[in-house]
């Protein structure tokens, strides 16, 4: 038995496909990015070694700073707007019984299964100043005048609204699962003791949901950092980089501005930031959970 389970050849064949995929699709491109990050390669012609020039430039690049700021704004939007709402809706949904519960749960998640390509174009139309849904809604409530939702001052908030709207169902579903896992006996006991809705929520639901909240918050921060597709189609980082995000910026620099070397340098810093934030969040939350 022991011999069978330590057969090197068998182990090698079992892990080989996974390791090959990892080396080829994840590690190799990272190494290549590190290499090109030190060059002034434009995408064509020769790559010249320029040392740390790209990284020095990146440090002083306001567009990159703006990208990180926007990720922070988005993360705050997720945590302060989307998550409290999602949790309240999840708690309310849990109180329903029968068919309605399933129907609402299904409805809330529908935007999540729709392609970002559709969502981004749809919202472009919703924000359209001429016939967009949003201006028409305002008209119904008596506000006149065409608001330009994607102007330089408004665009970032409009982008945040789309992202908060689109991811709502996902966050809700995870909180909902967390609430469903709470032992109903606790609620019965609370109701016998005459506890009201708010007391029950803040004394039982919230504390027991702590691990789920931590997972959800971690995922929200990381997805705010990695945001690209919606922004790429909705505003492409504009106007004037006001809705820029790191992933979109590195793509633009490499393929639109033909600064492939610089784009890769952004990529390297971007990867470091993502890994650092993930590790940091996991450490902080693990300590908290043990404490």
């Amino acid at each position: 038995m022991k011999k069978l389970y330590s057969n090197k050849w068998v182990i090698f064949t079992l892990v080989l496909p996974g390791v090959l995929v990892f080396l080829f699709a994840i590690l190799a491109p990272i190494c290549l990015s590190v290499y090109y990050g030190f060059t002034d390669y434009s995408g064509m012609g020769e790559a010249r070694f320029v040392g740390l020039d790209n990284y020095v430039k990146l440090f002083h690049d306001p567009a990159f700073g703006r990208s990180l700021l926007n990720s922070l704004l988005l993360a705050i939007g997720f945590i302060c707007i989307q998550h409290p709402l999602a949790m309240i809706v999840a708690a309310v949904l849990d109180k329903l019984q029968g068919k309605a519960e399933g129907v609402f749960r299904c409805i809330y998640f529908i935007p999540n299964v729709i392609s970002v390509a559709v969502i981004a174009y749809l919202w472009k139309f919703i924000y359209n100043p001429d016939f967009g849904l949003l201006n028409n809604v305002l008209k119904v409530f008596g506000f006149e005048g065409q608001v330009n939702w994607l102007s330089q001052e408004n665009a970032i908030w409009s982008v945040l609204v789309v992202l908060i709207w689109h991811g709502f169902g996902w966050g809700m579903l995870i909180y909902y699962t967390g609430i469903k896992n709470i032992d109903p006996v606790l609620y019965e006991a609370a109701s016998i003791d005459g506890a009201g809705w708010w007391t029950t929520f803040s004394r039982i639901t919230l504390p027991l949901m702590k691990p789920v909240i931590m997972i959800n918050v971690t995922m929200a921060i990381i997805s705010a950092l990695k945001q690209m597709e919606t922004v790429y189609l909705l505003t492409n980082g504009g106007p004037a980089n006001s809705t820029q995000f790191a992933a979109n910026y590195l793509y633009q620099q490499a393929f639109k501005a033909f600064k492939y070397g610089y784009g890769n340098a952004i990529g390297v810093v971007f990867i470091i930031i993502c890994v650092a934030v993930t590790v940091l969040l996991n450490t902080v939350f693990r300590d908290k959970q043990e404490a």
């Binding site: 699709a25 994840i26 190799a28 491109p29 990272i30 290549l32 990015s33 090109y36 950092l225 990695k226 690209m228 992933a247 979109n248 590195l250 793509y251 490499a254 393929f255 492939y260 784009g263 890769n264 990529g267 390297v268 971007f270 990867i271 993502c274 890994v275 993930t278 590790v279």
Partner: peptide, 11 residues
């Protein structure tokens, strides 16, 4: 942990 979009250029 690796952001997919960072691998677009090298890949």
């Amino acid at each position: 942990m690796i952001p997919i979009h960072a691998t677009l250029l090298p890949n």
